[in-house]
């Protein structure tokens, strides 16, 4: 049995189906759940961490059901939400000791140990208010690790951190996996997921549309990515064998099975249309491309519905 399992997991908020019939098994790996804002990532994590009751379907952590055996699930997991909630008027050590006491972990040894693992030993007695963002996130990881959980749930662990901070967090996550922990992460950062996750799942409008290793997903998307920089205004030309997948200002991104054939055709097409092409790049597809192909651009179009958002927050 996998550490984290979900079968037919569904959550409705009134008419909105936030998570729709999700099946998943995650075991001894770093699993990344990717999805646009409002796609159901956080709702999924809240259900797996017993903070939200599923409308239907089941989920379990280490064989314990998240509804019927919620207390036993909570003994086996740690959850770090994206808010970065550490007590700034307490020292790093006090922040961790506080969680150790609530987890029923006795003594100071384990507290010192996790602080050392997260490279916070030297600053352990400083108030957390003097910590940088990256250190605060590492302090939260230290809190989460103090009772040696079997599964670790991280919601956007690198949000708002600088490059060095992000790298440090991912290095720690990878190290935890190496020691046998199951890590469930949600993230917006595709390049980070590509590097650090063993497998990723793409969720769109509550449905899990793909689950596999990042490299496999990239290969499945197949072909090549042709990126053209053109002078504006420009109407994209259509050429057989090439599909326009994205447009960012003056950059047009096509996806083609065989770039060697389609690039000359594209260039000829733009020349005929009188559009000057200033740059050309052919590369293997990135996880960004996979993500956009699978999840689309859900966020554009519909405006942010504040009332629905508030209701959603209130119900959880």
């Amino acid at each position: 049995m996998a550490t984290i399992e979900a079968a037919g997991l569904t959550r409705r908020f009134g008419e909105l189906v936030a998570v729709d019939d999700l099946d998943l098994a995650v075991d001894h790996e770093v699993f990344g759940l990717l999805g646009p804002n409002g796609s159901g990532k956080t709702t999924t994590v809240l259900m797996l961490t017993t903070l939200l009751r599923p409308t239907s379907g089941t989920a379990s952590v280490s064989g314990c059901d998240v509804v019927r055996e919620a207390a036993r699930v909570r003994e086996r997991i740690s959850y770090v939400p994206q808010d970065m909630a550490v007590d700034i008027k307490l020292s790093g050590r006090e922040n961790v000791s506080f969680f150790a006491a609530l987890y029923g972990v006795p003594g100071r040894d384990r507290v010192d140990e996790v602080l050392a693992i997260m490279d916070l030993a030297e600053r352990a007695d400083d108030l957390a208010g003097t910590y940088s963002g990256g250190m605060r996130r590492r302090l939260e990881l230290a809190q989460a690790l103090v009772h040696e959980p079997e599964a670790l749930f991280l919601d956007e662990p690198t949000i708002g951190l600088d490059v060095a901070g992000r790298q440090a967090i991912w290095a720690h996550i990878t190290e935890l996996r190496r020691r046998g922990m199951t890590v469930f992460v949600t993230t917006h950062y595709m390049d980070e997921a590509d590097h650090a996750c063993d497998r990723v799942g793409v969720i769109a409008k509550g449905r899990l549309v793909a689950v596999d290793a990042p490299a496999v997903l990239r290969r499945q998307l197949g072909g090549e990515r042709i990126s053209l920089r053109v002078d504006l205004p420009a109407t994209p030309v259509t050429v057989e064998g090439a599909r326009l997948v994205r447009r960012e200002d003056d950059e047009l991104i096509y996806h083609a099975d065989d770039a060697a054939e389609t690039v000359p055709a594209l260039l000829a097409g733009f020349a005929a249309a009188g559009v000057r092409v200033r740059g050309l790049e052919v590369a293997a597809p990135t996880l960004d491309d996979v993500f956009l192909a699978l999840a689309g651009r859900q966020d554009e179009g519909g405006s942010f519905d504040y009332r629905r958002f508030r209701n959603l927050m209130r119900r959880r």
Binding site: P81, A85, F99, L102, G104
Partner: peptide, 13 residues
């Protein structure tokens, strides 16, 4: 508001 409550609610105590 600051997210502490969700962290506490996920604890076994």
């Amino acid at each position: 508001i600051l997210g502490f409550l969700n962290k506490f609610l996920a604890l076994p105590s």
